[in-house]
Simulated assay, not measured.
Amino acid sequence: MNPTPDVTTRPIRRAVVTGGAGFLGSHLCTELRRREVEVVCLDNFLTGSAANIEHLVGDPGFRLVQCDVTDYVHVPGDVDLVLHFASPASPIDYLKLPIHTLKVGSIGTHHALGLAKDKGARFVLASTSEVYGDPQVHPQPESYWGHVNPVGPRGVYDEAKRFAEALTVAYRAEHGVDTGIVRIFNTFGPRMRPFDGRAIPTFIRQALAGEPLTVAGDGEQTRSVCYVSDLVRGILALAGSGHSGPMNIGNPHELSVLQIARDVIAATGSSSAVEFVDRPVDDPKVRRPDTALATEVLGWAPEVPWSEGLGRTVEWFRQSAAARPVSAAPGLG
Score class of each variant (00 low, 15 high):
239 A>L: 06
54 E>H: 02
210 G>Q: 06
149 N>I: 02
33 R>L: 15
170 A>Y: 11
269 G>K: 00
147 H>A: 13
37 V>F: 12
160 A>N: 07
240 G>S: 01
235 I>S: 07
163 F>Q: 13
220 E>A: 15
29 C>L: 07
243 H>G: 02
81 L>F: 01
233 R>S: 05
11 P>F: 14
24 L>N: 03
79 V>N: 11
86 A>R: 02
141 P>F: 00
314 V>W: 00
297 V>N: 03
193 R>Y: 07
94 Y>L: 06
95 L>M: 11
211 E>A: 12
258 L>E: 14
159 E>V: 10
117 K>C: 04
277 V>T: 09
25 G>T: 03
47 T>Q: 01
222 T>C: 08
114 G>D: 13
272 S>T: 09
320 S>L: 10
214 T>V: 08
327 S>D: 15
96 K>C: 11
272 S>G: 05
261 A>R: 10
266 A>Q: 14
271 S>G: 14
98 P>K: 08
30 T>D: 10
297 V>T: 07
296 E>S: 13
5 P>L: 09
323 A>C: 06
68 D>P: 02
269 G>E: 02
305 P>K: 06
308 E>M: 11
171 Y>M: 05
3 P>S: 13
264 V>T: 11
152 G>R: 07
223 R>Y: 06
81 L>T: 03
180 G>R: 08
156 V>G: 01
181 I>R: 00
233 R>C: 04
141 P>G: 13
70 T>R: 13
309 G>Q: 13
13 R>A: 09
87 S>P: 06
133 G>L: 01
144 Y>L: 02
124 V>I: 15
139 P>T: 02
52 N>V: 01
21 A>L: 00
137 V>P: 06
147 H>F: 08
82 V>T: 06
268 T>N: 05
54 E>Q: 08
293 L>F: 10
91 P>E: 02
165 E>C: 00
92 I>E: 10
256 S>Y: 10
332 L>H: 10
12 I>T: 10
32 L>G: 03
154 R>S: 05
324 R>V: 03
332 L>C: 09
174 E>D: 08
216 A>G: 08
112 A>G: 00
332 L>Q: 12
330 P>L: 13
161 K>T: 04
90 S>A: 15
182 V>K: 02
3 P>Y: 13
199 A>M: 13
289 P>S: 01
209 A>M: 04
